[in-house]
């Protein structure tokens, strides 16, 4: 360990503090006594779909488009997920199928 036990515990506390501020802020700011501002209510409605979009893009942020496999394994496996979900609407089937296809592609094909 580069850090002593005390330094490690302080480091943990620093991470916890930074993370928890980011998570608690909205719940403390809009704690229900007063009515939540209209714009924030509206954000509460549009943010869930928008943030799911953000997370999907975030997942693929390091996929090389111009080099290596050009993102083909990711593209094919994602298509499997989407098509199977359109077909059966079964979460585990789509996640399991897409992951299996992806593992086969990156381990044996690309």
């Amino acid at each position: 360990m580069t850090l002593t036990v005390t330094q490690t515990l302080i480091t943990i506390a620093a991470i916890v503090l930074g993370t928890q501020i980011s998570r608690w802020l909205p719940f403390i700011a809009f704690s229900g006594k007063k009515e939540t501002p209209k714009f924030v209510q509206y954000l509460g409605r549009v943010l869930p779909p928008a943030l799911m979009g953000l997370i999907v893009v975030y997942c693929f942020k390091n996929v090389p488009i111009l080099t290596g496999s050009h993102g083909l394994p990711e593209l094919i496996a994602s298509a499997v997920v989407i098509l199977t979900y359109e077909w059966k609407e079964n979460l585990l089937l789509s996640v399991g199928g897409g992951t299996l296809v992806y593992m086969l592609l990156v381990q044996f094909v690309f």
Binding site: I10, T11, A13, A14, I15, L17, G18, T19, I21, S22, R23, W24, L25, P26, F27, F30, T36, V40, L43, G44, L47, P48, L51, L54
Partner: peptide
């Protein structure tokens, strides 16, 4: 620890938006 604190706030900044979305 100060750098660690600032870093973890910004890395997790999106969680504030999650909170708004889940109010």
């Amino acid at each position: 620890p100060l750098q660690m604190f600032i870093m973890s706030y910004f890395v997790n900044f999106r969680h504030t938006f999650y909170g708004v979305a889940l109010l």
